[in-house]
Design a protein around this nucleic acid. Structure first.
Lengths: 297, 297
DNA sequence: TCCTAATCATCTATTTTTGTATATCAGATA
DNA sequence: TATCTGATATACAAAAATAGATGATTAGGA
């Protein structure tokens, strides 16, 4: 039974201990001392009435109860960070921190010049870029704005459709010189191809489009699209990547230009709450404009 | 510029001051003293670098900045409460607090017997009932389970469709004795009717079904369906309410049984995270079963 | 086997936070 | 006008939280 509400700071301490694995490490992380962290955990355990950690000389091992509470504590941390970001943007004008979530490929290959120009225009704007393909992080307020490849169905979000980024099959000229150029799609079965590690919505979309993919046995697998792109650039074999990115390297050749093309629908998404805050508004617009330009629109 | 992260407790204090409107009232609310609350606000203002309140002898007036931060602070409070509820349910078995959100009518007229039976079966279960028609409170974790009249489109939610609760036009016999029984739908225009205060999705659904409603000039308006039900029971006039509720009072007569009937789709909804926690599982099942029984299924 | 490095627990001095009491101000009321 | 009630601000003492130092325990490596 919980008698009095614990200090919210205890939640922060609790999460940090979970993340760091020991009182000492959490103390270093938070700029406090180990006895203080220990007292916080003790107080929290007393307050909620059960044990959160098993102490050991190697650190603290979370109990099942602690693991159950972890997502709540993480959300609390996200919200606290969101509040601070909101606070940093106060005072009118474009200033403060804006946190953008995007896929690895987009974040590394496409966004930097867009964000760089934005930053030049608004020197007081601090840009954080979080690279992840998880769709949910807008709802958890881990980011203010997201570039997504699936249309979100959430009402509280403002969504702007950018269009389909064309994907194509590509290989490095070095690879083709050595292994020959496939003439028909079926020839791909005899080539070294680059594929996905795990099943995902994106992979299913490709399969649907080109059932042949099903039969292929990739000789290189990676979940990270970035790693796949690197593999194509390194001449490892034939893989799927954005046409615009491939064009940057004159040594990379597009294959089956007519037979295989796949538009990757792209959206810029923002919390409705943030539409009036200048820094988010400006960043949202810059992303939309920059991505449209990237698509040649 | 924010230099060091403020204590999370300051956020709680900040929100309480916003809610209560003065340092003194917030101090009473939190069980602290007015100087302490004042120091918390001072420290938070120093930390984030701008003023949150204008002090006055009548209390504290929030600045625009404070108003902007308010939703974040509220979400923080919801999450902290959700964490505590999760904590209260630890230890296996059906125990702890479960928070249910439902519309006023459902919560007052339909749920009590269901929840009462549930409570008898599980003495360690503490039930909180939050009456509101806002759809979003599941996402904000203000409730664990919700009874909703619109199907949520959110992926992270578990939804169970109950079916359509039939609505009908009703009036008290006392009213009909005095004003006569309308023969045709058009006759309603000459009667005292009970209508809605504001536009809502529910109202639009009714309008679509029975365009005649558009023409009616209700002599009693209330947003609260509960107030409308009370008005029908008091013999004020003719209004819309659940058929099953009207039947409980033999003095209430249903009108235009064939011409006017409207099923109110009903869903029980729960966060996916909570499906393994016994108290939520059990409550969810009890609500589904109870509501199906209420519908005669 | 012994040494090192990491951990948590405990005790005490110090710093920080909080509470108490009081002063001050603005508005409502007789 | 005098008074009462609510509010914030300030000074100082009390309480609480914190840091620092030390000891005990364990794992891993020479």
């Amino acid at each position: 039974m919980i008698r009095i509400e614990p200090s919210w700071d205890f939640y922060r301490t609790f999460l940090t201990v979970l993340q760091q694995g020991s009182l000492s490490a959490a103390a270093r992380e938070l700029g406090l001392t180990q006895p203080t962290i220990g007292r916080h955990i003790d107080a929290l355990e007393t307050s909620i009435g059960f044990q959160l950690f098993i102490r050991s000389p190697q650190g603290l091992i979370p109990t099942e109860a602690a693991t159950d509470l972890r997502p709540h504590a993480e959300q609390l941390a996200s919200n606290a960070a969101a509040l601070l970001r909101a606070a940093s943007g106060q005072g009118g004008g474009v200033r403060g921190t804006v946190r953008i979530s995007a896929s690895e490929v987009i974040g590394i290959e496409v966004l930097p010049p867009i964000l760089s120009a934005l930053s030049d225009q608004h020197p007081d704007l601090i840009i954080e870029l979080s690279l992840s393909d998880a769709v949910e992080n807008l709802l958890h307020q881990e980011a203010d704005i997201a570039v997504r490849m699936v249309e979100p169905e959430q009402d509280a979000l403002i969504t702007r459709r950018i269009g389909g980024i064309p994907l194509g099959l590509h290989a490095h000229r070095r690879y083709l010189d050595k292994h020959g150029i496939p003439e028909k799609l079926e020839d791909l079965l005899d080539h070294r191809t680059i594929g996905f590690d795990r099943e995902s919505a994106f992979v299913r979309a490709i399969r649907k489009r080109v059932p042949l993919i099903e039969l292929m046995r990739p000789s290189f697998r990676a979940d990270s699209n970035l790693a796949q792109l690197a593999a194509i650039r390194a001449g490892f074999g034939i893989g799927v990547c954005q046409v615009a990115l491939a064009k940057r390297d004159p040594e990379i050749v597009r294959l089956f230009k007519t037979e295989f093309t796949l538009p990757l629908e792209t959206f810029v998404v923002m919390h409705e709450n943030l539409k009036t805050t200048p820094r988010c508004r400006v960043t949202f617009d810059a992303l939309v404009e920059g991505l449209l330009a990237y698509l040649g629109k």
